[in-house]
C-alpha cells in the first residue's frame, strides 16, 4: 500500500481576528507514526482540521501526496480524521455509521472492522447519541483503523476510553501499522502512555510549531543537572534552561540542547548528577507559560 507524505508551508488559520495557526511549516515523510503535542488551545485540532479538509486555511500551502487536499476527492478519501467526539450523526445507529464508513473509504477492511467491533463490544443497534463516551471513542477508533486510510489522524480520539481499552488501541495501532504501513498522526495529552509509539514528535504552542524532532533525538537533547547550587550554576552557564527547582542548597535544573562530552566530564568532576528528561517533562517545560521566550523557542526549534 502506498503511503502519503505531508508538506505544510507557512500555514495560517484565522478565526475572525484570532490567529489559531501562525506560519507553521513542516514536512512529514509518509509511513511513520507522528505525535502532535500541544496544550489545550494550542491549535492542534485546527491544524489537523486543515489536513483533513474540514477547514480551509487562511494562508499558506498544504499538500498531501503532492496535491492540495481541500475539496480534492482523490486526497480526501485517503485522509481519515477521527476526533474524540466524532462527527457521526447522533440519530444514526452504530451499524449505520459503520455502513456509511464502509461505503466511503476505498481501503475499508470489513474483516478488521468486525474484529475491532468484537474487541470493543460495540453495540451495533444502539444510537450514537446513546453511547457512553468510551463507546463513542471505541467507535471512532474502529473506523480510523478499519478505514486503512493512507493518512489516519487521531485527535485525542481515545480520551474517553478506560486504560485497558486504550492499551488495546495502542496494540492494535502498532500491529496494523506494521502489517500495512501508513501515516499516523496522533494528538494526545497522554504522553507517558503513548510517547514510545511516536517516531517523530511535533509540538505546537500558541499556534506555532516550536519543535519537530525524532522522539529519541528530542529526548537526548534534554537533561537534568542536580547538585550544589554553585556547581550547577557554573555548569549551566550559556545553556538553555527550561526549568529549575531548589531544595535547600541543592539545585535541579532542566537544560535543553546538546550536552558536550566536555560538559559531562566537567559535571562529573564537580560531583553533579546528570539525568535524562522524559518526553512528558520536556513537553511541560517547553510549553509552560513562563517557559521560553518566543525568541528562545525559535532557537530551540532549530536542529
Amino acid at each position: 500500500m502506498m503511503t502519503l507524505g505531508i508538506e505544510v508551508n507557512n500555514l495560517q488559520l484565522k478565526y475572525g481576528s484570532f490567529a489559531a495557526i501562525k506560519n507553521v511549516t513542516f514536512s512529514l515523510a509518509g509511513g511513520r507514526i507522528y505525535g502532535l503535542l500541544g496544550r489545550n488551545g494550542s491549535g492542534k485540532t485546527s491544524l489537523l482540521s486543515i489536513l483533513a479538509s474540514y477547514r480551509e486555511q487562511t494562508n499558506g500551502q498544504v499538500t498531501i501526496g503532492g496535491e492540495a487536499p481541500f475539496e480534492n476527492a482523490k486526497i480526501m478519501e485517503q485522509v481519515c480524521f477521527i476526533q474524540e467526539s466524532g462527527s457521526f450523526s447522533d440519530s444514526s445507529s452504530v451499524s449505520d455509521v459503520l455502513r456509511l464508513s464502509a461505503s466511503c473509504w476505498p481501503n475499508w477492511d470489513s474483516e478488521y472492522a468486525a474484529h475491532l467491533i468484537a474487541l470493543y463490544d460495540l453495540p451495533l443497534k444502539k444510537l450514537v447519541s446513546a453511547l457512553s463516551r468510551g463507546m463513542k471513542s471505541a467507535l471512532g477508533v474502529t473506523i480510523g483503523l478499519a478505514s486503512r486510510a493512507p493518512v489516519t489522524i487521531f485527535d485525542e480520539a481515545y480520551l474517553g476510553m478506560d486504560a485497558p481499552s486504550r492499551y488495546a488501541f495502542y496494540d492494535e495501532l502498532l500491529k496494523d501499522y506494521m502489517e500495512t504501513p501508513r501515516t499516523f498522526i496522533i494528538s494526545t495529552h497522554l504522553i507517558e502512555e503513548v510517547g514510545s509509539l511516536f517516531e517523530e514528535v511535533l509540538i505546537l504552542d500558541q499556534g506555532r510549531l516550536i519543535m519537530h524532532e525524532e522522539t529519541d533525538v528530542l529526548k537526548s537533547r534534554g537533561a537534568s543537572i542536580t547538585g550544589s547550587e554553585q556547581a550547577v550554576d557554573q555548569i549551566t552557564e550559556g545553556l538553555t534552561i527550561l526549568g529549575q527547582q531548589m531544595l535547600g542548597r541543592t539545585k535541579s535544573v532542566t537544560v535543553f540542547g546538546e550536552l558536550t562530552e566536555e560538559h559531562r566530564k566537567h559535571a562529573l568532576a564537580l560531583g553533579l548528577e546528570l539525568g535524562p528528561v522524559s518526553l512528558q517533562d520536556l513537553f511541560v517545560h517547553l510549553t509552560k507559560k513562563e517557559g521560553l521566550s518566543n525568541e528562545q523557542k525559535e532557537k530551540a526549534s532549530r536542529p
Binding site: 474540514y54 480534492n72 480526501m76 462527527s87 450523526s89
Partner: peptide
C-alpha cells in the same frame, strides 16, 4: 458525516 468519511 460525509466529509468526515472523506467525501467532498
Amino acid at each position: 458525516s460525509f466529509v468526515s468519511s472523506g467525501v467532498t
